[in-house]
Nucleic acid binder design. Structure first.
Length: 219
DNA sequence: GACCAGGCACATC
DNA sequence: GATGTGCATGGT
């Protein structure tokens, strides 16, 4: 087995042993997952929960409802999710796209070729690589690995990459090394985020981190 | 009060 | 291409 593959599987086993299954994505439907993915950009999940709850309270937790709502009315509802105007616009744009091209049916979206669909998503307002991949993996169950800030921070601190390496370089590493496996990609990214939240902040808590032992392997 | 968060778009060089 | 900045909330 290649060294890199051993390392990646080693990290996964340590994380799973430490934290168990994370049961991601925390949402009741594919549409809620997509809404959450857009709202979650650059904020903590607690803020997303508040915005989701606010949408739910107004019976607006669906793209059909969002499409029927004015952007000016939508923005204050999602205020807890920060960048409210940009995110309100992003939700409106996605709602129009989703309704127009897929009749608000994620099943119809699922039938598309995954990389063609990814390109299409990347063309939408405020859908970047991470958001697109969250939609593909967590809402549409496609085997696409999601890279986020914590993934970059954790792998770079263990010497496998640097923070300057691109999203695509990180993603290719995971996807070339691991088999295309939706449950594995789902769990692995969720575990990395959980670890990042607890231990891999700008000021890291390495001594308490479950990956602490790996430092011996990688130097 | 300071720091940070499950990014992205756009301007400028 | 690389780098910098705006977006503009709420928890710790």
């Amino acid at each position: 087995m290649q060294k890199t593959k051993r390392q990646l599987l080693g990290i996964y086993r340590l994380l799973y042993t430490a934290f168990g299954s994370r049961h991601w994505w925390p949402a009741d439907s594919a549409e809620e997952t997509i809404i959450g993915a857009i709202l979650a950009q650059n904020i903590t999940w607690k803020n997303v929960e508040q915005a989701i709850a606010a949408l739910k309270a107004r019976r607006a937790l669906s793209f059909k409802a969002i499409a029927a709502m004015d952007e000016e009315k939508l923005a204050p509802i999602i205020r807890p999710a920060r960048f409210l105007n940009q995110k309100a616009r992003a939700l409106k744009v996605f709602a129009d796209y989703f309704g127009g091209n897929y009749g608000y049916r994620t099943q119809k979206m699922k039938r598309r070729d995954v990389w063609e669909l990814r390109d299409e998503l990347l063309g939408l307002y405020r859908i970047g690589p991470e958001t697109a991949d969250c939609i593909l993996l967590y809402a549409l169950e496609k085997p696409v690995f999601v890279i986020d800030l914590y993934t970059k921070r954790i792998l770079s601190r263990h010497g496998l990459f640097t923070m300057e390496d691109s999203y695509e370089e990180y993603q290719e590493f995971f996807m070339d090394t691991l088999a295309p496996d939706v449950p594995l990609y789902n769990e692995y990214h969720a575990l990395l985020v959980h670890l990042g939240n607890k231990f891999c902040k700008p000021k890291p808590l390495c001594a308490e981190c479950p990956l602490h032992s790996l430092r011996l392997v990688n130097n």
